[in-house]
Design a protein around this nucleic acid. Structure first.
Length: 380
DNA sequence: ACTCTGTTTCGAGACGAT
DNA sequence: TGAAACAGAGT
DNA sequence: ATCGTCC
């Protein structure tokens, strides 16, 4: 998923569009996160050794709950206000991509079976990870957990990445955190990579601003979308022999895919037949998203509910859960003062302290968009 | 020399005790 | 799944 | 910083 080679393309051609940021600098900010992506990572890595995973008494996996719980607490403790966005129905154009993944999992499942028969531990380790699939149940359990934690959940009509971008475009969140570069293609004004990494590893948070990307590439948003399609996206094939570099050249030279098609040597470059690039473009430009969502609120945790769900139903350690709940409450008090306080302490560089009234995401009290209010026109 | 393609290989959480 | 590092082939 | 554990 994502756009092939876009990270490198931007690093080479638009280095100023990304800047390192401190994890701490997001104190008080609302950040949209693609939930399914996180769950997928958790299932792969949390508590897995070979085919062993974390499970409750019923034998159901709990890795996603463990991961989601800890990570969310970590975010809240940093004063960040996460909004988890869940996937809806994928667009038809993505079906083939999904089919591809499905068959890959099938292959991996077979190879896993063989590895088990042969007792090849390394192979078991390797292939079991590739058979991971996020199910409806994983998603529902995480929604339940997050709601109990007092963290808002958004159900996207279609692609979560697109919904995240829409939330950001409409100032309902400050930025989108993802590892998936197509957040930019969906137009997310601010896009954060490696948000979680600085703690465990020493990779800094990378912040991309789509406006700067366009400025530095000297492209319009429409042209950037075409560039992404040519580079290779989830929705359709790309042209053999054209990668990021030449795609950028061609777009700069001709301005659009249509114009490129009119001007390039079709003997040299094989254009895929039935190439739905226009459909792909439409999915990026006018994705199926909704702003008709409940007001984003970060509530106090439901302590009894969390104990019931995590301890009683899923075998979590009572003490750990209790301590975690205390962390949430403490973090909530601390951050309920919002970014205001942070204006006095850390001297932010020249970045984006409080240009617009974007601290509107703070309980400045008063106004606050009552339910889906601010949704209005702005689309498109 | 440059660019794209294909292959391979690796890594992907977070906590707390030590 | 991706992304980085490498080899290979086409221009 | 490393390593076992989380369920």
């Amino acid at each position: 998923m994502g756009i092939k080679g876009l990270t490198k393309l931007l690093a080479d051609n638009a280095p100023k569009a990304m800047k390192e940021q401190k994890f701490e600098s997001y104190f008080g900010r609302r950040i949209a996160v693609d939930a399914s992506m996180s769950i997928y990572q958790f299932l792969i890595v949390v508590g897995r050794t070979g085919m062993e995973t974390l499970t409750n008494e019923a034998g159901e996996v709990t890795s996603h709950l463990q991961g989601m719980f800890n990570r969310t607490i970590r975010l809240l403790e940093a004063g960040i206000k996460p909004v988890y966005v869940f996937d809806g129905k994928p667009p038809d154009l993505k079906k083939q991509e999904l089919a591809k993944r499905y068959s890959k999992r099938e292959d991996a499942t077979k190879e896993l079976t063989e590895a088990v028969e042969e007792g090849d531990k390394d192979a078991i380790e390797k292939f079991s990870k590739r058979t991971v699939k996020v199910t409806k149940q994983h998603n529902e359990e995480c929604k339940r957990l997050l709601r109990l934690m007092g963290v808002p959940v958004v159900e996207a009509p279609c692609e979560a990445e697109a919904e995240c971008a829409a939330l950001c475009i409409n100032d309902m969140v400050y930025a989108v955190a993802s590892e998936d570069m197509d957040s930019l293609t969906f137009g997310a004004p601010r896009f954060l990579r490696h948000l979680m990494d600085p703690s465990s590893k020493k990779i800094p948070v990378m912040e991309f601003e789509v406006a700067k990307v366009l400025e530095e590439l000297e492209l319009t948003m429409d042209q950037f979308i075409d560039l992404c399609i040519l580079s290779g996206c989830d929705y359709c094939d790309s042209i053999k022999g054209i990668g990021g570099q030449t795609a950028l050249k061609l777009i700069r030279q001709h301005g659009s895919i249509e114009s490129i098609l009119e001007n390039i040597n079709k003997d040299r470059y094989q254009i895929p037949e039935d190439w739905p690039y226009q459909e792909a473009r439409r999915l990026f430009k006018e994705p199926n998203v909704t702003l008709d969502i409940p007001e984003l609120k970060w509530n106090a945790p439901d302590e009894e509910g969390l104990v019931q769900f995590l301890v009683k139903e899923n075998g979590f350690n009572q003490d750990r859960v209790t301590k975690a709940i205390e962390k949430i409450k403490f973090a909530k008090n601390k951050s309920s003062q919002g970014r205001l306080e942070s204006f006095f302490k850390p001297v932010v560089s020249t970045s984006v302290p409080l240009k617009r009234k974007d601290t509107s995401e703070k309980p400045t009290k008063a106004v606050a968009n009552k339910k889906t209010k601010g949704a209005g026109g702005k689309k498109k």
